[in-house]
Design a protein around this nucleic acid. Structure first.
Lengths: 290, 290
DNA sequence: AGCATTAGCTGACTTTAGTCAGATACCTTC
DNA sequence: GAAGGTATCTGACTAAAGTCAGCTAATGCT
């Protein structure tokens, strides 16, 4: 087998020139790269000036000049922050929106061209997800979200599909005790999503009762991100949310086909208990006191 | 399923910051990035000044200044090209070698750290190979090489391993008519290797007789690079080499398990003929007149 | 031999990115 | 309401990268 390090370095070289090409694409619209990056950060929903500065790693003076330059071009306008008049909030003008869309079109066209000329686009995407997860493991963030938002629905869809593959007789949500979304929202419960650069790669639900007991549901980690201790991080966040809601006892049901999850529960202080529901899918039941 | 384009763009972001981190690592040795890149290009075997300039996309004036700066540091020396006194050839001094090694150690340490903390390093490497092949398909070069060089041996090893997996009863080189390496070297034959950024990803052998007949052997394409028409390119290069050797008739033997190769032969003017050897593995035989 | 071409070098220049020290206005806390 | 801290802005600066025209010397071609 070839030296792993030289394989990685070949990858670096291939990707460096691709990234370089992307940068020159950004330069293609007659604007320096730094300014274009700020415009795109705003277009992607970053509004707070400090947030953009932090995301792009810019000096405050430089950031200020980039913003002035975008304002002079008529692409961006800044207004004071509603709650703190020291801070400023940036947003695109209609002209800025059009310019942002032009950048998006450039990136999208590149991405589509890459996929279109590849014989196995699905395999290529899966490989890119795996690499992106490996490289970006330090940039994964776990945040509370609504269990009905698009990101949550994506995670749940993947979760059901995975159960369908794992269980011998498949999986049908309708037969399972699907928790009411309201039970996974504050103040009764919570729903947590792990994202990497905006892409959802894992989730967990905390189904509350309003009392001191709650249940962990829907723990899922994207195949590309497995082994990176994301499940553990999600469970820790769910337990923290439970403590925050004054929950004292957590329960969960699981299935012996879900070996990674079972190993995680056993390693993090969960103890097996008797069956506590009549859902047809689970065959193992756990409890943890907080 | 998530939008493929946003998955690719997440990949781009993950990789951009990785590449950026690598660049700042390169800056850690107190030398501007441009100069460091030239030093590394020379260390990686690029000697011709014009070649380096082309590879790094530099203006000739800038390139010249970078070289002067490296010469002043005592890391590089330039001498006139043996055949063309206008051109210059750069090479590392012993001090330059040491400095280059220090950069190499930095890159290698990064790569090893990435692998070490990943749960499935083999899967990660395979994914990186696939992505690198997809991105670098325009940078694949097919060159003649010695059939006993390390790159060729790597390809042949992978080829035998693949046959072992594909054939029901496995594959043992000792039982096959392994061509003598001398038959795949000029002036009797040729051996061609496809490389992507220095990594071998495919090969083909032309086994000559010294007369007007020759045989195609050992056509192999790395799994990560399949579907990118590399097999076709290798065969075209082999046919060109055969014409160059005044070969008029090409033959080859194959096996019905090698479906991609068979499709390629049938699509590129080969016609099936009677068995022409008693090798135990092949069950299909082809011929092509040049 | 004569002439266009090529590779590399040099000097003068611009653009871009980034740094740093105040200045200003605002916020939080005591 | 004073003190100390924070977010942003401005001006003055530097480093690095890149551009461009013109130069020299060697080469290829007729």
């Amino acid at each position: 087998m070839l030296d792993p390090v030289s394989r990685i370095r070949r990858f670096n070289r291939a990707v460096t020139s691709e990234v370089g090409a992307l940068d020159t694409g950004f330069l293609g619209r007659g604007r320096p790269l730094g300014v274009a990056r700020v415009l795109n950060a705003i277009g992607h929903g970053r509004a707070d000036v400090a947030d953009i500065r932090d995301y792009l790693g810019l000096d405050s003076g430089l950031m200020s000049r980039f913003l002035r330059s975008l304002e002079e071009e008529g692409l961006v306008e800044t207004v004071p922050h509603a709650a703190d008049a020291r801070r400023r909030v940036a947003r695109l003008t209609p002209a800025g929106e059009r310019e942002f869309e032009a950048y998006e079109a450039l990136s999208n066209a590149r991405a589509q061209a890459l996929l279109a000329r590849h014989p196995k686009p699905d395999a290529l995407l899966a490989a890119m997800d795996l690499v992106a997860s490996a490289l970006g493991r330090d940039r994964v963030s776990v945040v509370e979200a609504d269990p009905a938002c698009p990101e949550a629905r994506h995670c749940l869809g993947e979760y059901y599909a995975e159960l369908g593959r794992r269980f011998e007789r498949g999986f049908d949500v309708a037969l399972s005790r699907d928790p009411d979304a309201a039970d996974m929202r504050r103040p009764r419960g919570a729903f947590l999503i792990a994202t990497s650069d905006g892409i959802p790669i894992g989730c967990v639900g905390l189904k509350g009762t309003g009392g001191t007991a709650a249940e962990i549901k829907r723990l899922w980690v994207s195949p590309a991100a497995r082994g990176l201790r994301l499940g553990r991080r999600l469970m820790e966040a769910a337990e923290a949310a439970a403590r925050d809601l004054a929950v004292e006892v957590l329960r969960l049901d699981s299935n012996s086909a879900l070996v990674e999850a079972l190993a995680l529960y056993r390693a993090t202080g969960w103890s097996e208990i008797e069956r506590f529901n009549d859902d047809p899918y689970p065959d193992l039941f756990f409890e943890k006191r907080l």
